Amino acid sequence: MPARPPRLKQRRDFQRVAGKGQRAARPGLVLQALPVPGQHLRVGFTATKKIGNAVVRNRTKRRLREAARLMLGGGDLQGFDLVLIGREATAGRPWQILLGDLRGALKQAGVTP
Rank of each mutant, 00 (worst) to 15 (best):
R4V: 03
R4S: 13
P5K: 01
P6S: 14
R7K: 09
R7A: 10
L8A: 07
L8M: 09
Q10I: 07
D13Q: 15
F14G: 06
Q15V: 11
R16W: 12
R16V: 10
R16F: 12
A18G: 10
K20Y: 12
K20A: 14
G21Q: 02
R23A: 08
A24D: 07
A25E: 12
R26M: 14
L29I: 06
L29N: 07
L31A: 08
L31K: 03
L31V: 05
L31H: 08
A33H: 04
P35V: 04
V36Q: 15
R42W: 09
R42Q: 13
V43T: 04
G44W: 02
G44E: 01
G44V: 06
T46W: 07
A47Q: 00
A47C: 05
A47F: 00
K49Y: 03
I51V: 13
G52Q: 08
G52V: 06
G52E: 12
N53K: 14
V55I: 09
R57M: 04
R57D: 05
N58A: 14
R59N: 06
T60H: 05
K61M: 09
R63W: 01
E66V: 00
E66A: 10
A68H: 04
R69M: 07
L70V: 11
G73M: 07
G73L: 05
L77A: 00
F80L: 05
L82F: 03
V83I: 15
L84M: 09
L84A: 05
R87Y: 10
R87F: 01
E88S: 14
E88T: 14
E88D: 14
E88H: 14
E88P: 09
E88V: 14
A89M: 13
A91F: 03
G92M: 10
G92A: 15
R93I: 02
Q96L: 13
I97S: 13
I97R: 12
I97W: 04
L98D: 04
G100Q: 15
D101G: 06
R103K: 13
G104A: 10
G104K: 05
A105N: 08
Q108A: 15
V111E: 00
T112R: 04
T112F: 00
